[in-house]
Design a protein around this nucleic acid. Sequence first.
DNA 1: TTGAAAGCGGTACCAT
DNA 2: ATGGTACCGCTTTCAA
Lengths: 342, 342
Amino acid sequence: MSRSGQRRVTAYDIAYKLGIAQSTVSRALNGSKNVSPAMRQRVLLAAKELNYSVNQTAARLRTKSTRTLALVVLHRPDEGPTEINPFYFSLLGCVGASAAARGYDLLVSFQDVGGPMFGYYEDSRQADGLIVIGSSQNEDAWRYFKGIADDGYAVVFFGSPYATETAIRADNRTGGAMAAQHLIDQGCRKIAYIGPLPPAQQQFEARYAGFAEALSNQGLIPVSARFPADGSKEEQGAAAIDDLLANHPDVDGIFAVTDLFAIGALQRLQARGIDVPGQMALVGFDGIRAGLYAYPTLTTIEQDLGRAGEMLVDHVIAAIDDRTPSSAFVPVNLQIRGSSRR
Amino acid sequence: MSRSGQRRVTAYDIAYKLGIAQSTVSRALNGSKNVSPAMRQRVLLAAKELNYSVNQTAARLRTKSTRTLALVVLHRPDEGPTEINPFYFSLLGCVGASAAARGYDLLVSFQDVGGPMFGYYEDSRQADGLIVIGSSQNEDAWRYFKGIADDGYAVVFFGSPYATETAIRADNRTGGAMAAQHLIDQGCRKIAYIGPLPPAQQQFEARYAGFAEALSNQGLIPVSARFPADGSKEEQGAAAIDDLLANHPDVDGIFAVTDLFAIGALQRLQARGIDVPGQMALVGFDGIRAGLYAYPTLTTIEQDLGRAGEMLVDHVIAAIDDRTPSSAFVPVNLQIRGSSRR
DNA sequence: TTGAAAGCGGTACCAT
DNA sequence: ATGGTACCGCTTTCAA
């Protein structure tokens, strides 16, 4: 049962009990210096006794500040909440941790890029700033949120397809190069790429560019796997293996642009009796935990999600405070595991 | 840059532009029947032109309703945001979807059961109700939130250790029995249980009870795996395999109380060269997506998380509306996959 | 250092 | 059907 019937205790109740003005209660509770220590103690005590807590709604109306951040997680129409890439859930967790550390609440909404979007949390005074994460080929969705940013609101993106001023993204190019170099170091000589080509998303494009460049520095040319454009990433990864095995039997190393592609690939390699990493070494990208559950465990370019969460939160807060917006790269590092360790 | 410098458009601006009273604007926007269709159109149009949206802070102060739900995800002190059981992230996603479908916003916070907790969102008028999910052996954390519920606030738990009136939980007993029956059907005759014993959490207790009962109905007695109390669930699952192989070499089927135990067990079985499902069949519980990435893929008792999300949201809303609180069971179903299909 | 009072931007009651 | 007005519970001047 809720307490809806009962009157909640207000600052006036404390003032009345103490025989002082309500404004003094407010000052005492907000750490104003214009309150005697003795008075502050009395107020604090009374507040505890009466079980008082500030009505944030009223405070927010008055201060025009919500101390709340909105996080929008974009997902595909054909993806249910349980099918969202675990990478984004982890990122969500990290954003939550950072927001809490900075004293902000976090409003979360999952938005299907096929349906209506909402991002004007600032207009309706539900949040001071907005963080947009999630994957989507759907340009419209990104455009919608970019429009909000262009309107002058505090918005920060993770991995948007645009080179926005306020976007946080992994150091994709470096990561792609690390993957290539690692495969070369493991003795691979014919190395393939699994991922959409041409890479629709800016993130993937950078990963591919770094990968291809590192290969060409060693005189190697990347092979590209073909696979259908529809289906889940895992299914696409599996299909890519079928293509490689059929059309490029000499491939001995693979860089998958995302762990989910890699996991699908790994399963298909397993099913087809290919020895990993013996016959085929594989490196993914993201560092999702499920990579540890795959067989063999997945080597990957891990994104530092803790940092990513901090950066996203710090950058929106900076935008809220009207400081100069900026973009930044999240550091990545190579996690060598079973799928490539020879 | 944020818009903090600019004055936002209010209902008064619309009223002024139209030469009407602000209260009429409010009525028109809130679908009051005491507004002529013509007037409503004018207001709607003007609102669109001026790019107006209702200041929710003010509306909430007046109506004493936030249309917001708070979701607290409990996690262990040694667990970072990226290490939280993916099950809870999926549940979070489902709660988010249901909340949105009911017209509620969702405030999310991750709380470390070792640190200070916060759940008085209702007192501070940040949310109308509270949903608590997450795993924890830490009684203190649960007790804290139970205290809030006992204070008469709208709180609903998922899988709390208490038999609270307002708790949603999987049909654990049935699920445990299904797992046992399935293993028997697959021809297993010496079946082990991997999970904490005695099961500290009420959820696990019910799963074990259903499992053990189904076995005894067939004249079978469950074997229990021993493992250290610390470490991750995956590590514990692996350690349990070591124990079984050493002390109960005749075991040919395993029920792991949680998928993460099962995945750890699967990896250790793999590493020790045991054929799964040939020599050893394995069934988990939860239905996390990572079970599909394991090798072989994990048979599991899947919880219907979509329903769980709906039930949690509907039950808090019911509590908010002062309707009688109640608890309910989330349906489970057996997902037969590689780890048990013989 | 404290008190009085003016809003913040809506909603809802009471007139008309 | 519409206008006028009293709040909702705070924060923040302005006076004293």
